[in-house]
Design a protein around this nucleic acid. Structure first.
Lengths: 339, 339
DNA sequence: AAACACCAGCTAACCGTTTTGCTAGCATTC
DNA sequence: GAATGCTAGCAAAACGGTTAGCTGGTGTTT
């Protein structure tokens, strides 16, 4: 393609002038500006991002690293992030760590090589929550999304997981349920841990606690949740209500119910934190918390771009979003079961 | 970060030697190689992708442009593409044209500026199916995905839409249905057009045709399909079976059924081309065709990388995948309706 | 009219790689 | 021992932009 020099020759000006026109970085007389623009048009010139990156040390690339691209929650994040990134004039480079620390390490090295200007990271490994050093030695601007570790020096965007779980659990208890089971996510993640903690806390506040065999690990996965739900519901004294830690697992539980011949909410009440897009169209509608993914993503980008422009001097900011309870038809008041 | 010169100084060799070691592009004595590797390690050196891109004219970036990132079908494509792109040693830059030609134009310009090595494009506009000229003047290697126009000079990966529609329609007719309605996609897309054509063709082969008011445009969207399905089913003589052109719309139709108090498959049979992930867990299971998205994506990348390496000389290849019918419980044999 | 300020536009250095000659040292051959 | 071939490693020129610093022409001030 045409280079800046071709344009300069064609318009009878210097490359500096062409650059000034392209970037609006200095005054150029209307006459020359017109000549340059004409030449650009005629030669179909577009500046090489590679050359720019090299000289400026900025690539106009923002990396998004998600922990599980197959999960609709993250798919939605990707969707929102693409739009936000484009709106700020960057391009989105997408990576999937697939919940594997070794992938994450490889990806972060690649991001460094690409000299991405910023990272939105759903961290898998604790190590990765430490700032990544970039090509200048100072850390690459990073926003951790969704998950954190305590005492973070990085900007973070999170949801109040404890509150989410508390809201849902309170709702179930308000309906009279006391024998409540739960299917949790991985407890080494703040999303998994916090949601279990919130549930336990809410029950404790009313002098309750789930039976030990009513607390099961579902790994945030549909198929695991399916089999765990079967176990949970086929034991001698099954829970009358189940709190499920995320939307994908709720789908698995619904499936288990149908396959076990159980009716929701007649036989068992189901409620979850987090949802999956499209599930809104299904019946019974799930009682769940909704997370403002779009707002969270936009805020993540606002923080990130701000940090890119203002450097590491400013304080780390931790923004916590509040989930909201959306009541569907998947929960019924507790009634003594007729055997 | 450390540059190649830092490494060269530190190891007491020239930059050329460091380059040779890093790229394995020339013989370097074991002794020097060891010194260089040690220096690289010590300085935590990683080559700048920007400088490489500039010099080599290759960026190791592959662009994926999808038409609608909110659609689970494309979300799945993104998931598969990220993995395939990484496996070939590239990074994925993601764009969403949101079905808007003007976005697509902007995106293609951006891709050119980034000097991406290849493009996987779900085209929105006919214009965009013409090859994009890159920084050397020759076209950027491109694979069109899912949709095409006839007489294409570009590599394409498609599904046999006509066959998909035919399979589903035949299945419905085998069950005895003759009054079959359909909710179509946009007819200017080959995916929309082909599926309608396949349905009409299958019916014509048995001397049938859908009533004019039983053919409705659903725009491949959940909400549109919902309202269109309501119209379709509340008219005087509703269809006894509906063929739906994609998975997202099937979800909308299911929702409409529930809201109208109709039972599937007792009151109306539902079948679709294409599905959405996660829908497999729901009841009744949808009768539909499944599209081998992962295979299609892997093949797309194989073609793309091959074209990147071998240039524009080789013939354009058009690979057509076959969908397969998956029978669920959403269809019942036709029976005379008891009014 | 001399001195000066101002500024549009140019020249050239630089960003960090890759790669094309080139050099110099050694081994082989007559 | 001179001529030749071979090759490991180097110096330096790109790649296509950005930008600091310079130049020379114009306008203003005294």
């Amino acid at each position: 393609m045409a280079t800046i020099r071709d344009v300069a020759n064609h318009a009878q000006v210097s490359t500096a002038t062409v650059s000034a026109v392209v970037n609006d970085s200095a005054y150029v007389s209307p006459e020359l500006r017109a000549r340059v623009l004409a030449a650009i048009n005629e030669l179909n010139y577009a500046p090489s991002q590679a050359a720019r990156s090299l000289k400026r040390g900025r690539s106009q690339l923002i990396a998004l690293v998600v922990a599980d691209l197959a999960n609709p929650f993250f798919a939605r994040l990707v969707w929102a992030a693409e739009a936000a990134v484009a709106a700020w004039g960057y391009s989105l480079v997408l990576f999937n760590s697939d919940e594997k620390p070794e992938n994450e390490r490889r990806i972060l090295a690649r991001i460094r090589a690409l000299s991405c200007d910023g990272i939105i990271l759903v961290p898998v490994d604790v190590i990765s929550t430490q700032p990544q050093r970039g090509s200048e030695g100072e850390p690459i601007p990073t926003v951790l999304f969704g998950r954190t570790v305590e005492g973070q020096k990085t900007d973070t965007i999170t949801i109040d997981n404890v509150s989410a779980a508390r809201q849902v659990t309170n709702y179930l208890m308000d309906l009279g349920h006391t024998r409540i089971g739960t299917i949790t996510g991985p407890l080494h993640l703040t999303t998994g841990r916090g949601r279990l903690d919130g549930m336990l806390e809410a029950m404790r506040a009313r002098g309750l606690a789930p039976a030990a065999n009513h607390v099961r690990a579902g790994e945030f996965r549909e198929d695991t949740a399916y089999s765990v739900a079967r176990e949970l519901l086929t034991q001698p004294e099954p829970p009358t209500a189940i709190y499920i830690a995320n939307g994908v697992m709720a789908l698995g539980v619904m499936r288990a119910l149908v396959d076990l011949g159980l009716k929701c909410p007649d036989d068992v009440s189901i409620a979850s934190t987090d949802t999956i897009p499209g599930i809104g169209g299904l019946r019974p509608r799930l009682t769940r918390t909704e997370h403002p993914v779009i707002d969270m993503t936009n805020e993540a980008l606002r923080l990130l771009v701000d940090r890119i422009n203002r450097g590491p001097s400013i304080e780390a900011r931790n923004v916590v979003f509040q989930p909201s309870l959306v009541v569907g038809e998947s929960c019924a008041p507790y009634k003594v079961r007729v055997e």
